[in-house]
Each structure stands twice: as structure tokens, then as C-alpha cells.
Computed example of a mutant assay.
Amino acid sequence: MRRVKIATRRAATVAGAAALLVTGANVAPAAAANPPSCVERSTWESGAQSYARANNTCSSAKTFYFQWDWAVDGDCNTLKAGYYRTEWRVRQATFRSLINC
């Protein structure tokens, strides 16, 4: 009898966790949003590299990272107002977006 109760509890716990994962999987955290429009983005290619630049024209510092397709994403950086940051990857990579961190 005791084993049946334990097995039933485990099954309910696993089912509940699976339901939570399925229903909560599409909910993005608020921090994963894009930086505001005052952080200007530009991209270009030269030779074997793909470049992306973020120019902070906001009145305050912004913290974000560069997200790339087919390459490792950039580190989280804080960019002061009036400053810009440029990152590059090998040309097969393409810049996807800036993401708050």
C-alpha cells in the first residue's frame, strides 16, 4: 500500500512539472527584451567578417549583449550614453539582435 502511494505521488509530481514546463516554456523573461530604440544598430560585412555596432544615443547607460546566428553570442556589456561598441564574427555568422541582460 505504501509503495502505491509513493509511486502515485511521484507520477503526479512528474506530470505537474512537465505541465509547468510546457505551459511556461513560451513565456520570455522581461530581461530578455530588446534595448530601447535609442540604442541604434548597424551591420555590415567586410572580407571574411560580419560586423555589428550598437550606438547608445540614450541619455543613460544601457546593458545588453549581441546575439548572433551561427556563432557564440557576445558578453553582457554596459554602454555609457554617447558611446558605441562594435563586435565581429566570421562571415558565416549573422547578427540577430541586441538583448538586455
Rank of each mutant, 00 (worst) to 15 (best):
V4R: 11
I6G: 04
R9M: 14
R9A: 15
R9E: 13
R10G: 10
R10I: 15
A11N: 11
A11D: 12
T13A: 15
T13R: 11
T13G: 08
V14E: 12
V14P: 06
V14T: 09
V14G: 04
G16Y: 09
A17I: 14
A18I: 15
A18G: 09
A19I: 10
A19S: 12
A19F: 09
A19E: 13
L20V: 14
L20W: 13
L21T: 10
L21V: 12
V22W: 13
T23N: 08
T23P: 05
A25H: 10
A25M: 09
V27A: 12
A30Y: 07
A30W: 07
A30R: 07
A31Q: 08
A31F: 12
A31W: 14
A32T: 13
A33M: 06
A33D: 12
A33W: 07
A33E: 14
A33K: 08
A33N: 08
A33F: 06
A33R: 09
N34W: 05
N34H: 11
P35N: 03
P36G: 10
P36S: 08
S37A: 14
S37Q: 10
S37I: 01
S37P: 07
V39F: 01
V39I: 08
E40Q: 11
E40P: 03
E40H: 08
E40T: 14
R41Y: 07
S42L: 03
S42Q: 09
T43W: 03
E45L: 04
E45T: 04
E45C: 03
S46N: 11
S46A: 09
G47Y: 07
G47V: 02
G47M: 02
A48Y: 10
Q49N: 15
S50L: 00
S50P: 00
S50K: 00
Y51N: 00
A54L: 04
A54P: 06
A54H: 04
A54T: 01
N55W: 07
T57P: 06
C58A: 01
S59D: 03
S59M: 03
S59G: 12
A61N: 03
A61L: 02
K62N: 05
K62C: 02
T63S: 05
F64S: 02
F64W: 04
F64K: 02
F64D: 02
Y65H: 06
Y65R: 02
W68E: 00
W68P: 00
A71G: 02
V72R: 00
D73A: 03
D73N: 13
G74C: 02
G74T: 00
G74N: 02
G74R: 00
D75T: 10
C76V: 07
N77I: 15
T78M: 06
T78C: 05
T78S: 10
L79C: 06
L79Q: 05
L79M: 05
K80D: 15
K80A: 15
G82Y: 01
G82K: 05
Y83S: 14
Y84F: 11
Y84A: 10
R85N: 11
R85I: 03
R85E: 06
R85M: 15
E87T: 01
E87C: 03
W88C: 12
W88V: 10
W88K: 15
R89E: 05
R89Q: 09
V90F: 13
V90E: 13
R91D: 05
Q92D: 14
A93D: 02
A93V: 07
T94N: 08
F95K: 00
R96I: 12
S97G: 09
S97T: 08
L98E: 01
I99L: 03
N100A: 10
